Amino acid sequence: MFYPNSPQTSPQLTQIPYGQQYAMMQRQIQQPYHPFATTEPQARLYPYHYQGPIQQEQGGFITQQSTAASPQYVQMRVTPVDQSIMSGYPNQTANGSSSSSFNYNIHPQQQQQQQQQQQQLRHHAMPVGSVPLQDDRYRKQLIVNYLAPDVTSTDLHELFSRFGELDGARIIYDKQTNMSKGYGFVYFCHAEDAKEAVERMSGYEFHGKWLKVGYSTNPLNIVPSNSSPYVHAGSRGAAG
């Protein structure tokens, strides 16, 4: 039997160049792979992502010199942007860049009308829970959420009447099932009393439920100042 490094198959040491006398086997001759043993700084910083320098080929596509990437890492192929796409944008300079302001050559009167329309939209648009300043009635009506099913309009009136005089209180019921929808409205005579009720009743436990109280901004629920107070009856038909 002959071994790869046996004296019968191995040459004389004098015939082997210096430095390879003890590297006779194939696994010894093959050098191990060192990912950080390279002179390129990109490979030292990113050993798993770097795959060699990027070269520009004919046709405008950018390719990489090395083989496919590892399945664990996804390499994105980048193509140059066609400058003709950006030619339609206004205020574009000769080098292809555009300024931040756009001039669509709008007539001054049209621009003024658009600004007025935007101001009107901001004036009428009102986020949930906010209180408008032009109508004091919005500051007097509250919406009470997360009410228990057994709470009546009379219970709601008695709960909030300790903060001040009320114009009314009612629970909203479903017309088909005649069941409470879980929320109601309270109408105060003074805005200061309503503000105190919002601050003190939010998070209050009532009939096993934690109440959420806020201003009601729905104009359909506003009680006119010259109208008669609501009837605080315990029956659902009268309260709904």
Rank of each mutant, 00 (worst) to 15 (best):
E57N: 05
V131P: 08
S84A: 01
G237F: 14
G52I: 13
F2D: 08
S153V: 03
R77M: 15
P41C: 15
H34C: 13
F160P: 11
D155L: 02
Q113D: 02
G214P: 13
I16W: 15
N221S: 09
D150I: 02
Q64Y: 13
Q109H: 06
M126K: 01
H157P: 08
Q176N: 01
Y138K: 01
T14L: 13
Q31R: 06
A68R: 02
L159D: 15
F206L: 04
G214Q: 00
T63H: 03
G240W: 11
Q30V: 13
P32I: 13
D150V: 10
Q8E: 09
Q176R: 11
P224R: 06
M126T: 08
H124I: 03
A239W: 00
G184K: 00
R77V: 15
Q51N: 07
Y230E: 13
G182I: 12
G60V: 14
L13A: 03
L142F: 14
Q20L: 01
Q83M: 15
E199S: 04
Q120C: 01
G19E: 14
I62Y: 14
P149R: 05
G234Y: 01
E57S: 05
E199W: 12
Q112H: 09
S202I: 01
T9A: 11
L166I: 11
Q42F: 12
S101K: 15
P80L: 12
A37L: 15
Y33T: 02
K212E: 09
D82T: 15
A239P: 10
S98R: 11
Q119M: 03
Y73P: 09
P47F: 13
F206D: 10
Q113H: 01
Q12A: 14
R44W: 15
T154L: 05
M76W: 06
A233T: 06
T152D: 09
Q72L: 14
N95L: 11
Q112E: 06
H34R: 13
Q120A: 02
V81I: 08
M201A: 06
I143R: 03
T93C: 05
S6A: 07
G184M: 02
V128N: 02
Q31L: 13
I62R: 03
L133I: 10
Q116E: 02
Q141T: 01
Q117D: 09
F206W: 01
D82M: 09
A69V: 14
Q75T: 08
L133A: 02
L45V: 12
A69F: 10
P219W: 02
M24C: 10
R200F: 00
S66M: 01
H34Q: 15
P132W: 13
Q28I: 08
V198A: 02
G234T: 07
I85T: 04
A194W: 08
Q51G: 01
S161L: 05
N218I: 09
D135V: 07
V151T: 06
M25F: 02
G88K: 14
S202D: 00
Y230N: 01
M126A: 03
Y48S: 05
M76T: 02
G129S: 11
V151F: 02
P229E: 09
Q31T: 07
F188A: 03
Y204F: 08
P41K: 01
F61N: 12
M86N: 00
G88T: 08
S70V: 01
S202F: 04
N103L: 03
T177G: 03
S87Y: 12
P71S: 11
Y18E: 10
H232Y: 09
R137S: 13
M179Q: 10
K181Y: 12
R137L: 07
H49L: 06
D167L: 08
S161H: 11
N91I: 13
T9P: 09
V78T: 01
A68G: 12
L45E: 04
I54T: 05
Q26I: 06
M201S: 02
Y204M: 14
H34A: 10
G182E: 00
Q110W: 04
P53M: 06
C189R: 06
I54H: 03
D136H: 01
A69W: 15
S235R: 11
L147C: 00
Q21H: 14
P41M: 15
Q92K: 11
E205N: 13
S202L: 04
R200K: 03
E199V: 06
S100V: 10
S202G: 12
K195M: 13
P108N: 02
N5E: 13
S84C: 08
G60T: 09
Q111W: 12
N105M: 00
L147V: 10
E165I: 10
Q111P: 11
L45Q: 09
V78S: 07
R236A: 09
T79C: 13
Y46P: 04
S227C: 12
N178G: 03
G59F: 10
L147N: 01
Q58E: 07
D136S: 01
F163T: 09
I62H: 01
